[in-house]
Amino acid sequence: MTIISKEARVNEDIRAKEVRVIDDRGEQLDIMPIRDAIQIARERGFDLVEVAPNAKPPVCRIMDYGKFKFDQSKKDKEAKKKQKTIQVKEMKLRLGIEDHDFKVKAKNIQKFLGEGHKVKVTIMFRGREMNHPEIGRALCDKLVEFLSEYTSVERMPKHEGRNMIMILAPKNV
């Protein structure tokens, strides 16, 4: 079946004076004035739909436009269901994080990556900690090393205001 754009012109909306007509069985009829083509379509109980507006002369097809739009919306919904959305989860860490807390957060990140999500890791700085971004980078490196078999770094750690942000993506994506 011919793919028709969302803004297809139908019946009286077609602007050309003459059109090449394809009937509802897919057979080419002829080049004819637009009035005659619309009349043939109506006699058969269908609509005249412009399928190739840039051709010389434009190509129109005789079809049930309402049924076509309905089928097209069903296909669009089906395609949307199959489409997988990737969410970005966020995990916040502090510079003075204890080893056990680090492992718990790393395991949560591992779970998110296993589900196919990207993870935004935010290292938060307070007060004098702002003078030591190398500690934040070391924490990011430790996290990447801990999760090396599950993740790849999509965005390297970057200092933004009072935070250092790194984005991790699942390895299989």
Rank of each mutant, 00 (worst) to 15 (best):
K80L: 13
L29D: 02
K105E: 03
T151W: 01
S73C: 01
E129G: 02
A169K: 15
I123T: 09
D141S: 13
R94H: 04
A169F: 05
K92D: 07
K142M: 08
E43V: 08
A41N: 10
G161V: 04
F46Q: 07
A16K: 05
K80V: 07
K84M: 10
E154G: 15
I97W: 01
Q83F: 12
V59T: 14
K74C: 03
K56G: 03
N163F: 02
E7F: 12
E149L: 11
A106N: 06
I109W: 04
E154W: 08
R42N: 10
P53I: 03
R94Q: 06
K92W: 02
E129K: 01
D24I: 01
V173E: 10
P57F: 01
N172G: 11
I4M: 14
G96W: 04
I38H: 00
I38M: 12
V21T: 13
I34R: 13
P53K: 01
N163Y: 07
R20L: 15
F146S: 06
N54V: 09
K56R: 09
H100W: 10
K118S: 11
D141Y: 07
F102I: 03
V173D: 07
E18I: 12
A41V: 10
I31M: 07
R15L: 15
L147Q: 06
K107E: 15
I167M: 10
G161C: 07
F46H: 09
E145A: 14
L139C: 00
L147F: 04
E7T: 12
A37C: 11
I22L: 12
D71T: 06
G45M: 10
D36N: 12
H117W: 05
T122L: 08
R162E: 13
P133V: 08
G136D: 07
Y150W: 07
L147W: 07
P133W: 08
H117I: 00
N163A: 11
V104A: 06
Q39Y: 14
F102P: 08
L29W: 02
I22A: 05
L139Q: 06
L139N: 02
L48V: 09
E160S: 07
D36T: 14
P53R: 04
E98S: 13
L29C: 09
I86R: 06
Q28S: 13
L113I: 13
R35G: 07
M1H: 10
D71C: 04
A169R: 15
I34Y: 06
L147R: 09
I97S: 01
A8S: 15
P33T: 04
V51Q: 05
F146H: 13
H159I: 14
I62R: 02
N108K: 12
V153G: 05
N131C: 05
Q72D: 11
K103Q: 14
T2M: 10
I165H: 00
L29P: 08
K56E: 15
C140S: 14
K158T: 15
A55S: 15
Q72Y: 05
I40G: 00
